[in-house]
Amino acid sequence: MNIYNSKQYKILDVIKQTGDNTLLRIKCDLNPMPGQFVNVSIPGIGEAPISSASYNDKLLDLNVRIVGNVTKAMTQLKKGDEIGLRGPYGNGFPMKELKGKDLVLVGGGCGVAPLRGIIEYVDLHWKDYKDVYMFFGYRTPGDILFKDEISGWNDKYKVFLSVDQEVGANPFNCPVGFVTDNLKENKVPSNAVALMCGPPIMMTKTTEILKEKGLTEKQLYVSLERHMKCCTGKCGHCMVHGQYVCLDGPVFTYDEVKNLDE
């Protein structure tokens, strides 16, 4: 078996989420853990690592935002097309270790997608965890991801959405402000663990606030973004301070990656 080769999977649905986010639903038994990723192959164009946005042994959801050639080609795929995948790769969020805890999910923009894997995981293992807090921030109400699922989440979990600007309709009545504003104003237990994915500035600010709320750096998990090519710890592109983001990450405790002067 050639480790660089991928297998073909059928696309069951292509769902336009927002102006620049598309969800590909794929018939797939790879079943990545929350926080793990697959490498998507579009032969002729190249490969790109995409985080799983689901937790399901028959389906795989990939949320795609166009940032490069591969993601652009992915959004042009249609229902019934096939797509090449290899993986899953990476460590993922340590869901088993976190049993019995309150979970605080903090996501910004398309960084929410990998966190949805955690939500689907907790949906299936709800007895194992205490409360789930979600602090998700988007640019505008139109950019909100997984809109159809929010009322369902609201029934079971504590959901706090925010938008940077109020442009157009605001069906979820999101307050205008940053994720961190919501986080400041709401209580989270000091023995909770926080799982974060989003722009670096969001992660830095979130960390400050959570530390004020009594969480230590070891209770904070972040998912890092790097240039990954081989996804098998060889090509060297994703290495930072000796850690392969593709093998040892992409999830690290804040303690491990703070002050990363490249």
């Binding site: 032969p43 002729g44 164009i45 080609a73 795929l77 249609k78 097309d81 096939e82 797509i83």
Partner: peptide, 8 residues
């Protein structure tokens, strides 16, 4: 067989 290159 569908593939990403299917030419329109």
């Amino acid at each position: 067989m569908n593939n990403p290159f299917k030419k329109e």
